[in-house]
Amino acid sequence: MGTYIIRRILQMIPVILGATFLIFAMVFALPGDPVAGKCGERPCSPAYRAAYIQKYNLDKPLPVQYGKYVLNLAKGDLGTTSNNIPVADQLKLRVPVTGKLALMAVLIETGIGILAGVLTGIRRGGFLDNLVLVSTLVLISIPIFVIGNLAQLYLGTRLGWFPVTVTSSNPSVYQLLLPAIVLGSLSVAYVSRLMRTNLVENLRSDYVRTAISKGLTKRRAYGLHALRNSLIPVVTFIGFDFGALLGGAVVTEGIFNIPGIGGYVFRAIRVRDGASVVGAVTFLVIVYLVVNLLVDLLYGLLDPRISHE
């Protein structure tokens, strides 16, 4: 187990380096003036320009620039934004918000998705099955920015069940509830379909038939044997999704005015604040890889046949 984890962490290093280099090259090697728009409406003073170029080694070739950046990264220094605020401080403010939102979305999708998948998988072909199949299809088809705006208008403004926008930099669970439902809605559809397909497949398998024929109750045979084995692809998806939700909440964060990491990166890209973009994306990549490692370790718990020895 220990060696497996160490090997996996070592494998992460080239992926992190590659991903940061890609982003770094795209953001810093852009044609055009590197300080354009950094000083508001007027052009930047030569002194500012010289200091900026000096700071980010823009007069050196790209590999040197990147090498220096990675050395700083290894020391835990993510650089500073164009307003001279450390990127790490910005992330510390925003990551908890997006993390909370993504976690709530994952909890919602797991709960509702698995429940719907199990209910439809057990009674395949019934009314509920068809209802869930059609409604998930519709849910997958509607883009998230339409769902988000409609939910905000009807559930937030018209009915007043939820707060319309988030008003604090440290929002409460209640304030984030509607955004989390919107963010998780697409994944609810995927989770329930994945759960249903796998459960249907496993219910027909030999070991479930054996379990029932040796006298186990249906509840126990389904719940203990079929369900546990069907969960593996679902857990894989949820793990992947958590990483995707952290970085992909740009639209939802925009609609509900949530001060999260997606909106931060998006704004940073628009104003060409390179250090913020590279720093935040690096962070997202690392989180994604770590979550994937955790998911792989979870397999061992769900299926004893999979071992990481």
């Binding site: 494998q11 080239p14 992926v15 992190i16 590659g18 991903a19 890609l22 982003i23 795209m26 953001v27 990483g243 995707a244 952290l246 970085g247 992909g248 740009v250 639209v251 997606g262 990166v265 998006f266 890209i269 973009v277 994306v281 997202l284 990549v285 994604y288 890889l289």
Partner: peptide, 17 residues
């Protein structure tokens, strides 16, 4: 591993960049 590099970058933010 080359695929992993591109896969690890969030789709929407990566596309924006």
């Amino acid at each position: 591993r080359l695929g992993d590099i591109f896969f690890a970058i969030p789709l929407l933010l990566g596309a924006v960049i």
